[in-house]
């Protein structure tokens, strides 16, 4: 990419499409951006095994729902067909898919998504009990200060403004029901 003009000249010489250069540039930028770190065989095997478990579980449960006849298909027939399909395909993946490199290794930073997910769940638990305002504010603080590394000042300003904006938007702007503690 050091000499875009020459690249462009080459490009036009080879293919007439004018946007192809953009395309390639973007492609390279994208590849650089998410330098992937494939997880290896274990990741592929686990993926296939989960599929296999889903398929087998589906087969067992759908057999219990009643297959019916072709004239009157029962509740279990279609789930059984689909479950068998999942099982067969997952088994195939287990055999041929071990060498795929489309997975992504867990690292220390993978703990961050876990913390993020936990804040979501906490919000959902607390919302019906104490309204959405305080949990939403806490969620913002955790995400901005601890997960995002913002300064305390911007954390507080952004959190308060966000929660106030959502309050106004949902309760007054849209008049949709949302559990809340404070009423004005």
């Amino acid at each position: 990419m050091s000499d875009p003009k020459r690249a462009e000249a080459q490009q036009t010489a080879e293919t007439p499409a004018p946007d192809l250069l953009d395309e390639i540039q973007a492609e390279v930028a994208k590849d650089l951006e998410d330098e992937k770190d494939p997880g290896g065989t274990a990741y592929q095997v686990v993926g296939a095994l989960v599929g296999l478990a889903l398929g087998v579980g589906g087969i067992v449960l759908s057999l219990g729902y009643g297959l019916g006849t072709l004239r009157e298909p029962g509740a279990g027939m279609w789930p059984l067909i689909v479950s068998v399909l999942i099982t067969v395909l997952s088994a195939a993946l287990l055999v041929v898919g071990r060498t795929l490199d489309d997975s992504e290794r867990f690292r220390r930073a993978s703990l961050l998504p876990a913390v993020g997910a936990a804040t979501f769940v906490a919000l959902a638990f607390l919302m019906p009990v104490i309204g959405f305002e305080i949990p939403a504010l806490l969620l913002c603080v955790v995400w901005l200060r601890f997960l995002g590394g913002e300064t305390w000042r911007s954390t507080i300003v952004v959190s308060v403004v966000t929660v106030a904006a959502f309050y106004a938007l949902f309760l007054y702007g849209l008049r949709v029901p949302l559990p809340h503690l404070f009423a004005f």
Partner: peptide
């Protein structure tokens, strides 16, 4: 305006105003 009736209530509730 979307309705701006103001009222003071206590406890967790779902809807605005009232």
């Amino acid at each position: 305006a979307g309705g701006l009736a103001l009222s003071a209530c206590s406890g967790v509730q779902n809807t605005a105003g009232g």
